[in-house]
């Protein structure tokens, strides 16, 4: 027993010592870093969600990795987690490492206040991308985000301009309560109310192609007539199209059913190009160019004209999409 106690004491002493030593040495080096920033790499700590979360995230991570390289003058460290607490831990680690910029795509909106205050005190500048958080605006320099409402509005505007003789819509929703679902559903619901469009079915398929297929199948089995599929992501549009194929209902450009998807996966844009779908709305994962812009401005001592930067997002029409678009915007 005694030996154990002594051992525990010894190890904890060692740990404490290591921590203090770490603090000391880092504190010393940071001052020299400050003085000659001009020719040094800009160090950035990037905290993101797990790259395997979705195709969108994979594209997002690859984009950031391709931009923040040594050649471009950045010393980038990456950390991935889907859990907020782990992300906060990473943030604290990056702050201790005295990175110049902390780029953050938060898993959850809450719980970031204290760590961002630490960052501010340590002189680390925070830029949010992809997702916003519930924290005071003074705690971060800028946020680069998608406007999901605008994505939905663009798609609905496009649908309106198709001037179909009637609008009978099957609406496949994403996971209820997610930002993408609320934005994309909101626009459709509003316009459908105003223009008296008929929503034949409105169900959540939880981003899943299989569930979308089952839902559309059940609408077909019930002999309900529809001429528009409004799916809030590409996977669900794909599932819906599989159900249409099974029932021999034609879809795409100039056919019986108009198919709308979101996210601009590469395979989805290929479907558009082939005329099997009609419209695909982009959710832009390429935030790095915007972030680089912000960092350059801040490095030059300029002030940013606005805190929240909303990215340009496109919507592709099957009749006008080109091979170059598929290559450039497909994720």
């Amino acid at each position: 027993m005694k030996i154990k106690k002594v051992l525990a004491m010894a190890t904890s002493m060692l740990l404490c010592g290591a921590v203090f030593a770490g603090c000391g040495s880092e504190g010393g080096s940071s001052s020299s870093k400050e003085t000659k920033k001009g020719d040094k790499l800009i160090s950035v700590g990037i905290i993101n969600n797990d790259p395997n979360e979705s195709g969108y995230r994979t594209a997002n991570v690859n984009d950031l990795k391709a931009t923040f390289t040594k050649e471009n003058g950045y010393d980038a460290k990456f950390a991935y987690s889907l859990k907020n607490e782990e992300q906060i831990n990473y943030a604290q680690k990056f702050i201790q490492d005295e990175v110049d910029y902390l780029l953050l795509s938060a898993a959850d909106t809450a719980g970031w206040d204290s760590v961002l205050k630490d960052a501010k005190d340590a002189g680390v500048r925070v830029i949010l991308f992809d997702r916003t958080i519930d924290a005071d605006e003074s705690l971060y320099e800028a946020s680069v985000v998608s406007d999901m409402d605008k994505e939905g509005e663009q798609a609905v505007e496009w649908l309106k301009n198709q001037k179909l003789t009637s609008y009978d819509i099957v609406h496949l929703q994403g996971v209820m309560g997610s930002a993408a679902q609320e934005g994309r559903s909101g626009a459709l619901t509003k316009t459908a109310d105003e223009l008296k469009w008929n929503i034949v079915a409105e169900q959540t398929a939880e981003w899943s192609s299989e569930k979308a297929q089952q839902i559309v199948q059940s609408v077909i089995d019930a002999d309900k007539k529809f001429n528009v599929i409004y799916a809030e992501n590409d996977d669900m549009a794909k599932g819906a199209v599989a159900a249409l194929d099974k029932a021999n209902i034609s879809h795409g450009v100039g056919k019986d059913v108009v198919v709308i998807g979101f996210d601009c996966n590469k395979w989805a844009l290929e479907e558009l190009k082939a005329g099997n779908w009609n419209y695909d709305g982009q959710c832009n994962p390429f935030q790095s160019s915007y972030i680089v812009d912000i960092i350059e401005k801040l490095e030059n001592g300029e002030t940013l004209s606005q805190k929240t930067i909303i990215m340009d997002e496109k919507g592709f029409d099957a009749t006008t999409i080109t091979d170059a678009d598929v290559e450039q915007y497909g994720i």
Partner: peptide, 16 residues
Amino acid sequence: IKVSRLGSINYSVIAK
């Protein structure tokens, strides 16, 4: 059966 249905896979959603 699952991957044969659509000929592709979505790692985070398949068989959720």
